[in-house]
Amino acid sequence: MEDLLLIEEITKNKPGAFQQLVEKYQTLVINTCYGFLHNYQDAQDVAQEVFIDVYRSIEKFRNESKISTWLYRISVNKSLNYIRDNKKRTWFQSLDILFETEFKTGSSNSLSESPEEIIENKEKMDVIQQAIDKLAKNQKIAFTLYKYEDLSYKEIADVMNISISSVESLLFRAKKNLQKQLISLYKKND
């Protein structure tokens, strides 16, 4: 079904229309949030908030941009807000977090990997995620959309409301900084 028609049906409270929207875009939203949060449970929580926001404000949606662009924008904002609030909350975090067993689904080749490989890759991913997290805000947004969602420069420019050349420059710097950080981490480990 066309997105515009879908939105029209949601505004008219047609049964099943909102479900269609959620099912069509849930992977997009969860994956975008995951790119920022690096935790499946957190990504699902934020994605849920994204869709609640969409449900509440669907009437405000202007047909100027694609619905996916709108969803990306909300996902990025919600994820960044979540990170900000989480930083504040760390002081209040309870001990149960220490015992929390983190699990993640969707990793493309987790079934074919041995436990040692999974642990090794998890450790490597933690290092990479730390490096991504250290990027400047806009570099991080551009890089996450580019790497996790495979968006084109034009699509990233639409989501971030900037020019394509700015996206190019942001990605160039993001890659450079990421490379720099990873190399310095390798040096530390040697």
Partner: peptide, 9 residues
Amino acid sequence: LIASDKITE
């Protein structure tokens, strides 16, 4: 690894 670290399901 970054490219493979995605939620696909």
